[in-house]
């Protein structure tokens, strides 16, 4: 019994010295590492609207439209699994390690509109 009191009091002294083990979120930013999966980003300029990301998405979160030149992601559906990033042939998708701010109500969709196609150069 005496030994136990000692184990716990050693622990208490250590904790007193080292300060709290928790973060004061949201006053301090959440922990994150290089590999953390925060949210998906797109570099729309490189996108060729092939739709592979949408086909590989297990949560059906992406909608791509070739005609409108849009790429849309539903942040509420997305589970940040990284499949779309692996599937993209142009490497224009990436996973950022920044977590998005919490929101109070949905839907939360992000739509990216690509640049107009360059006028085709007609061969003379």
């Amino acid at each position: 019994m005496g030994k136990i009191t000692f184990t716990m009091s050693k622990r208490i002294l250590k904790s007193l010295a080292s300060g709290p083990a928790t973060l004061r979120y949201p006053h301090e930013p959440a922990k994150r590492y290089e590999a953390s999966r925060g949210h998906i980003e797109i570099n729309i300029d490189d996108c060729i609207y092939c739709g592979l990301c949408s086909k590989n998405c297990p949560a059906d979160a992406i909608e791509v439209s070739k005609d409108d030149r849009t790429w849309e992601i539903d942040r509420f559906r997305c589970i940040i699994c990284n499949s779309c990033v692996e599937a993209c042939p142009k490497d224009c998708l990436s996973t950022s390690n920044v977590y998005l701010e919490p929101v109070f109500s949905g839907p939360l969709k992000d739509r990216s509109v690509g640049p107009e196609p360059e006028p085709e150069v007609k061969e003379e």
């Binding site: 922990k31 590492y33 590999a35 953390s36 999966r37 699994c81 990284n82």
Partner: peptide, 11 residues
Amino acid sequence: EETTGGRVIQG
């Protein structure tokens, strides 16, 4: 999280 990117759901 450091090795897989997810704390609970590793994927």
